[in-house]
Structures are given as C-alpha cells and as structure tokens.
Write a protein that binds this DNA or RNA. Structure first.
Lengths: 354, 354
DNA sequence: ACAATTATCGTGTACGTACACAAATTGATG
DNA sequence: CATCAATTTGTGTACGTACACGATAATTGT
C-alpha cells in the first residue's frame, strides 16, 4: 500500500493540458452549455487521450445525491417463504448502495388480493420514488402502474416475471418455458419405455397464472421434440389445501398406474410430496420448484428428486443494482437478464446459498 | 433525487455533540494514541448512539490508498480453456475495484511445469505485492510460496483448490468430494438394476492430482451409502492424447458390456465423448466437468448428459473481492467459501453465464 | 464608439474524512 | 511559581469533483 504519486490527475490535469480552468472541463464533461465549440473539442480530445474516468467517489461525495427506491413485491406468507429470498437480495443490495445515498422503501402486497396490490401501488406513487422495482404478479394492475411510472419518467425494473410491451428499464428473472423443458429432460433421463408422466398445476387462479402455463408448455414441447412415446397428462387443481389436492391427485394416480414421474409446476411440490409419502409412494420421481424449507426437507428425505430454482436472491439483488447503475450512471443496464436455471438435489443443496 | 438536508453529519456532528474537534473524533475512530480515556469514552458513546458509519467514499478519497494485487494462476492452454473463466472474473473484479485504487497484476504458470510455477512465484515475490490470489495447483511449491507470504504478512487467498494448514485469508472454490457424490446421484437416477458404472481418471500425473481422487472418493461413497449393488470400476489413464485414451477406454468397455454410465473426473470428458461418438455408443450416460466450449458441443449433441460446474468465474471474482474487502476493511472475509455445484444439461446451458 | 447583452470562462467553496502540524493543557520538577 | 516535557486537543490543508457565482471576452444594437 502506498500513496499515489503526487502528479496532477483528473480534471486538474485535463485543465492544465487544455489551458483552461477545471470549471470549463467540468462543463465539457457534463456537456453543459456555455463552452465554445473549439475548447470543447480540445478538452474532449484530451479526455479521450488520457482515457479519463471521473473519480466516482469524489463525484458522489460532491453531489451528495440521495435516491429513494421503491420495491413492490409480494409479502412473505405463511403459505410460502419464496419471497423472503428476493427480499434478502434486495436488502443486501440496499446495504451495499446505502453508502452511495440509496435508500430503499418496501411495499408489500398479498398474492391473493389484487386490491392489496392496487392499494400498495397508490401508496408507492404518492411517495414519488426515484426508481421502482416491481414483481408484476397481477398483469393488468401492473401494467397500469408501469404506465403511470413511464409517464412520470420513473425507471422501472421487473423481477420474477416479465410484462410484455412495457417501457421498463430491465427484466431480471427466469425463462419459464426453458425451465419446463429442463424438468422434462431430467425426468426423461430416468424414464423407462412404458412409463408415463403427470403434470400437476396447483393454483387457485390458473387462468391468470401465466407462470405455470409457460412451464407446462416447455415441458410438453420437450417430449414432442424428442419424439417420445411417453404420455404426458395434466392435472389442474384449483385449490391449494392439502386435502383438496390429495383427493384430486390420488384419484388421478389410482386411475393411471403407469405414472412414474410427476412434475409440479410451482413451489407447492411439497404438498404433493407429503401426499405421496402418506400413501407410501416412494418410487415416484417428483420434480418441482424453489428452494423452500419445506421442499428441501422432502428433497433430503428423497420424496422430491429435483428442485428447479432460478436464484431468487440474485433477482432481488440484481434488480436493485440495475436501478442503481442506471441512476448513478455507473454502467449501462441490460434489458433482459435471464437467471441460470439451477438443478438442486439432495447432494448439492447445501452449497446453493452464500 | 434530492439534496440531503443540510444538517451536520458524520465526524462533524460527533465532534459538536462531544464538544471536541473533529481531529479528536478521528483519533478515536482509528483508535490512535493521544486521547484521554475520558473523552474517548464520551466520543465512543456518541458514535454508538448515532450508529455512525464513516463515509467510505470520503475516507477513500482522503487516504488515496493504492494497492497492487498479484494473481498467480495457470495460463489458458490449448488443451483447456478452463482458466479463462476465473480470469474473466478476476478482470471483472479488477475493473470494479480499480476506482478504489486497486491494480491487479497477472502471473501465469504452465500446468505441466513446476519450474514455471516456481519462476513465476519468484517474480511475484520480487514485485512485493500487497496481496496475492493463488491457484495452488502444485501442492509443495505452493506451500513454499504461502509460507513466504505469511512471513511477509501479505494476505493470501486460494481459489480452485485448497491447501491444508496454511495461514491463508480465505479459500474460494469447490467441494470436490461432494461434487463426486452429486455425479453419482445423477447417474444412479438413470440406472437400471443390472447396469454398471465406470470412473475414468485422465491425468498425466494422477498421484499428484488430488482433485480427481477426491471426486472419485465422493462418487464411490454415494453408492456405498445407498447400499447399491451397482458395480463401480475405475480406469486410470495417464496419457491425455486421444489415441491413448481411446485404446485404454475401448479395451475396458469391450471387456465389460454392462457399463451404462461413465464418470470422467475432470474436464477431459470431451475426449471420452469423441471416442464414444466414433464408436457409435450413443446410449451411454456420460458425466464430466466444466463449462468448456468442447464439452458444451458434446452436451448439445447429447454425447455428454451432465456437466458439473463450480462457477469458475465467480471464484476469480470473489477471490479478488475478498482481498479488496480485507485490505480496505470493507467487511470481514469468510475463511472458506464453497461454490454451488451446478448441473448443466442441454436444456439449461444457455443461461449459465452472464 | 459606447453601452448592453450574451457567450464563455475562472474562482471559491463544499462534500466527509485523513493526517500533519500547531496549539493548548496538564503534570512534574527545581 | 516558572520551566519544560509529555500529553491531549485543535486547525488547516488535501483528496477529486460539482456547482454557484463572479469575471472576462465576444457580439450586438444604437
């Protein structure tokens, strides 16, 4: 560790070389008005030559900017702790950017209630944040919010699911179709000639749950593309209570004895695991989603074979970071960032975090 | 975006409340000598009360520290481009920390030559860096270097493989044993009753390649723990040329027709893939390591079924970051960081980067 | 030719912290 | 109580950039 050599650096050096004051250099850098074309060229040439990068710390220190970010995501419910992971990532990013003047305010909505979403989004708009991170679970309501934010020129980043035709800064989340394909591949690798497969959608509002549909689509497409003879049936269950799922599922399974693998299109795979365990079906290949406590438990007990995850924590982290980078002009932000599709098993789940 | 309220903040506010000068506050914060116990207590109490966090930017700006990091890793060879990934991560971290005064110098060695390692490590020591990131491929030579660095009190971080009993700051890399177990699990999920498995170690110096041994160990242990009847044989090939591998491998395979799965314990799995393709063995399950161009090609053509990866890019990135955080006192550094063990297939490889 | 604009440029202060140096206080000693 | 040293505390300047304001130069109008 040593002190830097004491030669002029930064704007001062540029100013010296260009025979102007640092004020003028400053104006050129921020292309403000009030500098002649000639000197502007001269200064820009020197900036180019020196490959000058402004000292971010000094500039941040000088501006004393402060930004309020708003985050609108589902609340962590008793039903699922999925959203605790993006939240952790968001908090981590908040901690890292705090020293640069970023403060993050949270707004939560209930996944079962569109009204709660609308209400929270009104609160959010009232607070006039400088940027918004949104998990657009409700398509139409989210579009309304996105439109308003666009009007107010407040940058918006989606996480977890995308919304088409929106003028958002970025999307950070999974490729659902492809994750369905992956599930299909994993299952197909363990299937015998005569085995069949069952897709289980568990959702109280399947029509609006584009998530599940896209995954199912990818799953089926894989078997189609492979020219496989495997029969793929779908079971839609529009209640999320165990007993309701149990009745519906067992009825189906009893009627089709060749089902050797089940693909649950969301994190409720632990419900299916519980049912299979209860009925002593231990040789069914079970694939589902998300690194939740309950799911991991069944992964360890081998009721669940594979869990597919898409780095929920990183989604939150990268979402905040994208806004930060954009507003503080740290770097350009990619329009779409698809998360890796991770496969979690009994043998690697321990290392999935950190 | 708005200006922060114009009230006193930071050391000034502390100084005001404690009725001392900012110089004294500064002394307390860095617990320098020359401040009476009484005022030290007083100031510390106020720091506590305000939950004061020094402004990193201002402090960095004021100190104008600059640090030289040295990186000693294998050169990217024609044989494998594996080390290009850690390198990318290192360069990314270097770019991010550059503005904080970090400069990173690279030293490369040849994986086939201990002399090149020794030579490079001498150069490194000559340059007296402030910190070192090391991939300790050669155990003894690395231990020598580590000891010298320890003597000079230069912090050292290992990536990619660990070295026992060294006084290093951190290790960032894979858990090899567990990755072997994972390979075993993946294979076992596709195995029939009567199928057998072959482990293939391809290395010109297997005795010293603790990597492969640890993976093999984990692999075998999985089948043991599962109480499986599957026969697991091992084939050691101490040449890396295709023809040599081909001869050895095909001889073994011809002699044991029940081998339905092959586990190659390193990234040379593409050699095996090429051989199997040549001999029209398309229904063998093949599992190996690392996200290399050649391997991905065979993954796409389905010659390789699974690739196991341990985020080489992140290893480089986190390695540099650990040194940065330590030297700039940003945060504490974890002693061991095990990378997630990722499973890559034809259906998810596209999303593995970024 | 002169004032009145307007375009261009320079200067000073601030951001929050670090550190060298100066100043003030304390305590001991003759 | 004066003197000196040791201890404790205060002050000033620097880091590199931002920006308000004042100063100068170029242009226009009469």
């Amino acid at each position: 560790m040593k002190k830097a050599a004491t030669e002029l650096t930064g704007v001062k050096e540029i100013a010296r070389r260009a025979n102007v004051s640092i004020g003028t250099v400053d104006r050129v850098i921020h292309n403000r008005v009030g500098v002649s074309e000639k000197t502007k060229q001269k200064v820009n040439a020197i900036i180019e030559e020196l490959n000058f990068q402004p000292n971010k710390m000094a500039s941040l220190l000088a501006t004393r900017k402060s930004m309020n970010f708003a985050v609108l995501i589902p609340a962590v419910s008793a039903d699922t702790d999925y959203w605790s992971f993006p939240l952790t990532g968001i908090e981590q990013a908040a901690a890292e950017t705090k020293q640069f003047g970023v403060s993050v305010k949270h707004y939560f909505y209930d996944l079962d209630s569109k009204e709660s979403f609308t209400k929270a989004s009104h609160e959010l708009l009232n607070d006039a944040p400088d940027a918004v991170l949104l998990a657009p679970s409700f398509v139409e309501e989210s579009a309304v919010l996105a439109a308003k934010l666009d009007e107010l020129k407040i940058p918006l980043v989606f996480i977890n699911s995308d919304l088409a035709d929106q003028n958002n800064l970025a999307y950070i989340g999974p490729d659902l179709y492809q994750s369905g394909r992956l599930a299909a591949q994993l299952i197909s690798l363990s299937l015998q000639q005569q085995d069949n497969v069952l897709i289980v959608n568990i959702s109280s509002d399947l029509k609006n749950d584009h998530h599940l549909v896209r995954k199912e689509h990818g799953f089926k497409k894989f078997f189609e593309d492979a020219g496989s003879k495997t029969k793929v049936a779908t079971l839609n269950i529009n209640e999320t209570k165990l007993t309701a799922v149990e009745q519906s599922l067992m009825q189906t399974l009893d009627a089709s004895p060749d089902v050797k693998a089940i693909f649950v299109t969301n994190s409720r795979v632990n419900i299916v695991a519980e049912i299979l365990k209860k009925h002593n079906r231990n040789n069914t290949l079970l694939v589902g989603y998300d690194f939740l406590k309950k799911n991991i438990d069944y992964l360890v007990s081998q009721q669940i074979t594979y869990l597919i995850c898409q780095r929920p924590k990183e989604q939150g982290y990268l979402g905040i970071m994208a806004l930060y980078k954009h507003l503080f002009k740290v770097s350009e932000v990619e329009r779409s960032v698809y998360m890796p599709i991770d496969i979690i098993t009994k043998e690697n789940y321990l290392f999935y975090n950190s």
